[in-house]
Design a protein around this nucleic acid. Structure first.
Lengths: 109, 109
DNA sequence: ATTTAATATCGTAATATTGCGATATAAATT
DNA sequence: AATTTATATCGCAATATTACGATATTAAAT
């Protein structure tokens, strides 16, 4: 075992969960917050800022890119990373729909 | 390796990430949605609804309980699970602060 | 008292994730 | 052309997660 049984769930549930999973790591939260604060940055800035190895930062950036939330554009010998605004807004909508839904509690609890 | 270096991040980042991590599994999303729809349910309902083994559901419920988002109260030979409203609202506030922050994009990207 | 029902926990196998050194690639600098 | 700089990828070790069968526990039903 060790494999999530994605076939048991609705596409929407798998999609939401896989996005939340990517965000569920402090390095990736820190990376996003740094990019948001600085507007944009390069990989090496994050290596210095966070204190993880360059290979590790690069891997986290790859995962963030994979869900589309950030974008990297080549600028000479470095890569400029920034938030992908369209996708960020999509995520906002999706997360708001989930987290801001009205929860009604039964008396028993 | 294989250990997240939590000492590198701010408490807030670790807290947010660990909560998102728990939500980053489709079974746990499905469980939350089912509880929200039904107002409350027992473990066995979820076993039938989701098609995972009882031990597996019980483990997922344990993780959701660990972050406080659900609560279980004994009712005879079963346990009634429901959303913990106070914590849910806390999470709403925390997630909204993160996801609904204003993101400004640099021209380069 | 015995059986049934619901849940939790233990142990374990399969797989995934995290982190990093080493190396590859590619652009800028000397 | 050689060096420097920035990043990506590979391969690996350590650890974490997922899932489940088996078993334990506890309350209700017979």
């Amino acid at each position: 075992m060790g494999v999530t049984k994605t076939e048991l769930y609705k596409d929407e549930q798998n999609k939401l969960a896989s996005r939340l999973k990517v965000l569920g790591h402090p390095a990736r939260i820190a990376i996003l917050q740094y990019i948001i604060n600085q507007k944009a940055c390069i990989c090496n800035d994050l290596v210095e800022e966070l204190g993880l190895a360059q290979a590790t930062i690069s891997q986290h950036l790859k995962e963030l890119k994979a869900i589309g939330i950030i974008q990297g554009s080549i600028e000479g010998k470095s890569v400029c990373y920034c938030i992908e605004e369209q996708i960020w807004k999509q995520f906002q909508t999706e997360f708001n729909a989930f987290f801001n839904q009205d929860v009604k509690i039964k008396q028993c609890c």
